[in-house]
Design a protein around this nucleic acid. Structure first.
Lengths: 198, 198, 198, 198
DNA sequence: ACTGACGGGACCACCCGTTCAT
DNA sequence: ATGAACGGGTGGTCCCGTCAGT
């Protein structure tokens, strides 16, 4: 049966995610992963050519899942503001997704600083979001629902908000319900903090 | 002369900052630091008890410099909006400060995920900002210059913006003038993205 | 073949015995052992978790071999004096046994002074001998073949003799035939040095 | 004042004795000695050329003290048996001497196994005792107070007894009053264990 | 006489990846 | 496809001894 092979592979990936999250990429040894997954080194190197290979696969998995959510949102919506708020919800949900430990993101980014291959993969979606929100805002400005402003700047702010909340969720996981916070933040951003002189 | 000792110590710290930024904490070897600093391992371990010790000192230096800038701002200002904008300028300036490599921040945060001692030191200032902006916003609301909103939420957004821009500056250093971007972002946040129905 | 593994393991143990005997535990490096045994460090640490682990195993091997000889003697004899003299022969034979370098005993004892785990293992057999000889002497006194004396004291003397001869054999290996000396010493001890006033 | 220098020197020696006894020669670092003695490394190497040098000095001190006691005994006595018993008392007193930790003896002997210079110094007194007791026994035989026996063998036994008791005192310090045990042992040795057929 | 910064080297433990046998 | 032995190399830490300076 070929299921056996895939199960081993899956278990290794699963364990690696946990260990990389808890201890970091460099601090986690291959032997450690094998022991935790209950397999031998032979099995590990049969499925993955390198320690880095498993890391890349983890990264790709993560990005794929993000893209799926991203694409789903893009389809079903019409209004610009609606789109943005739903995106906020998605980001908000990332915090709660138990199986994806947030801190592995830091690991991805840290490694991306050095390895160009990882950098490319890890940074690409960020650019995609940037351009997506940029055009989304432009659309909003054109249709009159948003104020006239630099759409690129606006996109940058939205992405900043998402990244910043992510970081804070890492620093202080129990601080608030980061999912709710995410939505409310976007609202406040849309309306502005300054009182309007009506 | 006791200057000699301090110079060695300073050179080690300086080199360590650079190498940690470029290659990361774990990927940087003590021998590498020693070689780059032109000192022997004996000298290194005379000044620092551990590789971690030098990392902690780097972290403390960084936080101290941040606090100094923070405190200076707090004194000279009056209006709430003024304060916030000037803070934005400070954060913006961090990007340009040549001697402080941004990516060491990622290193700090990554390590903080594992070492409780580092975590405490690295997370403390974040909380300080949180409470500072929170009370600053409350003040603004009381004096009528800001809209009625949850000040804690607002503070979280501001911090998010700062962190998020920092991350983006890391991902795409040459993308924009992140210093200018920082100021303009705050402006936009204050006014809101949504068009006012005058 | 699983013989290969055991051969490697045995070769490491063998080499370690020699080197520890010649240079001492602390002065002998793991790399040195590996080089002398013709294996890599990877192989070493695959078989032994620590440098200390190999030392403990050496100690245990030694004690086991001692116990076997001890037990064999205990069975085949009847008279008390006979038993004692045969024991003397055994101790005497230790000096000649080529494959067991005597000076590793000093190493065992020296290390036992610091490491409680080693101490326990190294000191246990000494106590066993103490009680064994004590009861053996008591038996001799009861059956009238030995003079009335404190059996514990007598046992202590016998053990002292064995230990003392061992030490002297270490200090002056070629001084005498320590095997013969051992037997004669026991004889003299039994009869006493002082002239009997017949 | 030149007293200052000697005090420093003495303090170093004192501390070294303790540390070598507790942790062994190799496990004790020069820096450790300096720290415990409250002096700098410069001071240490001003007084002693090498770590080994201080060890040799300790050894010599120890041997000198032994020789003094040895010589004192030799003078005041007349009978052979008297001499031997008084010697036993001396050895017995070594156990109680608080300022000389016994376990440093093991250290001396262990090091003697490797370093010829130490070996010569450490083994010399042993030979002196050997010849001294040998002639003492011969004297006893000649004057008729001792049985006819090989005086060299007898000397070896006496030295063995002393060494063996020393070792046992190391292994089981609180086991008995080793001072008393020493005297009684010699008595028993003189009379013999075997019952005399009167 | 004494200080302490410093040089250079070694050591133990570990780690990643390979290989041979099953 | 999997397991265990193994190779070769690195990494942080520590240690002995020196030397310029006080």
């Amino acid at each position: 049966m070929q299921k056996r092979s895939e199960m081993t592979r899956a278990r290794i990936l699963e364990v690696a995610t946990t260990l990389f999250s808890q201890q970091g990429y460099e601090a986690t040894g291959v032997a450690e992963i094998c022991h935790a997954a209950g397999v031998s080194k032979g099995a590990f190197y049969h499925h993955f050519s390198t320690k880095q290979a498993i890391f890349l696969e983890l990264l790709e998995d993560w990005l794929n899942r993000l893209d799926i959510a991203f694409e789903q949102t893009r389809q079903g919506t019409q209004t610009v503001t609606q789109s943005i708020e739903i995106m906020a919800g998605i980001v908000g949900n990332i915090y709660q997704t138990a199986d994806i430990n947030l801190s592995i993101l830091l690991e991805f980014w840290t490694q991306a600083q050095r390895d160009p291959m990882i950098w490319q993969k890890a940074i690409a979606p960020y650019r995609r979001y940037q351009t997506y929100f940029s055009s989304l805002l432009q659309e909003g400005i054109d249709e009159g629902s948003l104020r006239e402003c630099n759409p690129k700047l606006g996109a940058r702010i939205i992405v900043s908000l998402a990244l910043g909340l992510l970081m804070q969720a890492l620093f202080d996981p129990g601080g608030t319900d980061w999912g709710r916070e995410s939505k409310e933040s976007i609202h406040l951003l849309m309306d502005g903090l300054v009182r309007r002189h009506e």
